[in-house]
Amino acid sequence: MGNWLGHVGSGFFFLIWASWWVLQLSFNTLRNKYERDGRAGVPSRPLRLCRRIPLEGIIICLCTAFGFIAENMYPYTRWKMFDEEGNFIEANVWQHCTIWVAFWIFGLVKILAACCCVNLKPWIPVFRTFSFFIQSIVFLNHLKDRDVLNTKLHVLLLIAILLCVLFSGMEIWMKKDKFLPFMRMWATFVNGTWLIQVGCALYPIRTGRFQWKPDDQSVKFFTMIFAWHCIGNVISVVMLYLIVAIAMKFTFGHKRGYSQLEIGEDSDNEQRSDTMYLERLQGGNRSQNNWSDNSL
């Protein structure tokens, strides 16, 4: 993360993750509603297959492993933690790698809980909160020995991360709350978009902009931009939910059942047939009785 590409790549990781959460939770919430109304059909084969495969855990493990390797390979190879004299080197690199390891562990827990260790499912929010907590500890150290603008950018990032810790931690005890998951997803969106913003502010050569001056005006400007990120990501969560809602309305919007008119006509026809059969049967019995009486 110590460069423009590292900040942007990490930001997109959280954006993809939060988008997946919103789409998944929106689909499950609306599908349960349609099932209660009797309008949900049988899931398609690709959807049933996706439910069986722990895609989220696999994607998290792959992305975090790629991030860990990229931290030590870009822009040059630096796998050493200590030099020849025993001094700790490449502190930022290994701190960032610690974050990737924490989220990799969370992805592994997701995979194991879906495949072979069902007892791990209650621990998923715990490990998710633990991952965000590790990220907050590492970025807390980024506030030292930096100019006023750099410090402010990381303070705002730390606020977004602590919100992720807060909302994810509250879900451990408040599992039935319907709003906490969306608040966690919103905070994760802010975490991702602000990471991208920090990269573009600290490494403006990549974006073709001038170097921001570390003064009060820049601090006030980026504080306002952070507020815009918070507002914009609320809109992002709502828009994703509406997209899923509209798509599912076209898919499950009509009740499945038989027409009442057709059922009524069939019932009347059956009733008429039964009545005619009984009349014939009774007529046959009467003629038989008359023939018996006459023969006597």
Rank of each mutant, 00 (worst) to 15 (best):
C115N: 07
S136L: 10
V234K: 00
E84S: 14
L153M: 15
I105K: 07
G257H: 10
K144L: 06
F66K: 09
A65P: 06
I111E: 04
E90V: 08
E265P: 01
S267F: 13
L112Q: 08
L242Q: 12
K249W: 06
L180Y: 13
T29Y: 03
M174P: 12
G107V: 02
F88H: 12
H142A: 10
G6F: 14
C97Q: 13
K110G: 02
K176S: 11
H96D: 04
F130A: 08
L202T: 14
A113W: 12
H142N: 11
V22T: 11
L49A: 03
V155A: 05
V155N: 09
I205E: 14
K175A: 15
W104K: 03
T129Q: 04
T29K: 08
K121D: 04
Y258C: 04
G86I: 15
D293T: 06
K33R: 15
G199V: 06
G264P: 06
S259Q: 00
E265R: 15
Y241A: 03
S287D: 04
F103S: 05
D147C: 03
F252V: 01
M185R: 05
G67F: 00
P75A: 10
D274V: 08
L202M: 15
V219R: 00
E90T: 11
W21T: 02
M170A: 09
N285R: 15
I134G: 04
T98G: 13
Q271L: 05
V101M: 09
E35M: 14
D147S: 09
A227L: 11
T193L: 07
Q282R: 14
T151R: 14
I58Y: 02
S44I: 00
A18I: 09
M224L: 13
N32Q: 12
A227N: 04
F179Q: 09
E85W: 11
R286A: 05
F14S: 10
N269Y: 01
